[in-house]
Design a protein around this nucleic acid. Sequence first.
DNA 1: AACGATAGTGTTATGATATAACATATTTAA
DNA 2: TTAAATATGTTATATCATAACACTATCGTT
Lengths: 165, 165
Amino acid sequence: MSAEQNIIFCRDHHDHQSCMATAIAKAEQVCESRNQRFTKLRKRIFELVWQQHKPIRAYDILDQLQQDGRAAPPTVYRALDFLMDLGLIHRIESMNAFVGCNNPQQKHEGQFFICNDCGAFVELDSTSINSAISISAEHSGFEIQQRTIEITGICPECKGKKKSQ
Amino acid sequence: MSAEQNIIFCRDHHDHQSCMATAIAKAEQVCESRNQRFTKLRKRIFELVWQQHKPIRAYDILDQLQQDGRAAPPTVYRALDFLMDLGLIHRIESMNAFVGCNNPQQKHEGQFFICNDCGAFVELDSTSINSAISISAEHSGFEIQQRTIEITGICPECKGKKKSQ
DNA sequence: AACGATAGTGTTATGATATAACATATTTAA
DNA sequence: TTAAATATGTTATATCATAACACTATCGTT
């Protein structure tokens, strides 16, 4: 039962409303189970991260917040740190940006496939990628603490669009 | 003939002089073959990156340069960009830092295993990791352009030291 | 050797990303 | 209801990176 997940870029092709609602429900669940508070601010920032199904940068979040009144960087970064600690979002190191996680209940660090064209991304947790890395590490006694795996390129849709031009 | 490379953390256990000399020789070769100039400045910065066998940040390089006189950030970043373009060094995204590459002749993007304790690192180019990722991508028609694979943790030596304390 | 073209470097200013430190407000739990 | 703990606001500043333009060195011709 460890079938590899398929990459599905869902940009524009789904019921965003319910997708978002599900994410929020999961987040609330995770917070509750860890005795953490999903405050109004944290929820707002979580929503902004999820909103577009693509990586968003801290200062873009800040810009959005400032449309409702004053806000400063620490407000954003603190919320992002909180959400990351709980695994509700992930940081994309190579882009200084953040994405929502759709499997926050499981502890994991995903593998991210991100389209350079449209920004759509997919998070995998592939057994074969994970174990290839683990094996390399075990081989020499390296003890893994954190995995950063970020693959950028062109998603199937954008590839299609390009061809037909 | 695709035996996996082993992780070897060479910190402190090698002839640094000749290790460095080899790296410089390779770099000169690569530059020559691509009709690029390995200028005094570029060489100096290349040496600083190699010097410690661990990731070094741009402003730390800048500090070193400034001991020989004035220098400003663009001087450093330009040289780093040049060296990266030729594959003579790599950027570690998750640390905003740079490391020397010991196989610059081959075009590749490595997998980095970096010790959180001592900073030692190893660059692999593992067939099994690479193909696991390629397979995941091909599965759905994602066209890979760039791979960022950075694994942090504790190297065998530091693990040993900790145990014996 | 003299020349213009190209490539490389210096310099100043500023943009982009992130955090420290402390003040204030809110929630929790006794 | 109150003290402790948690969360947020606010100001200042650290850290990372690049744009734009001036100047210098090198290369390839004549």
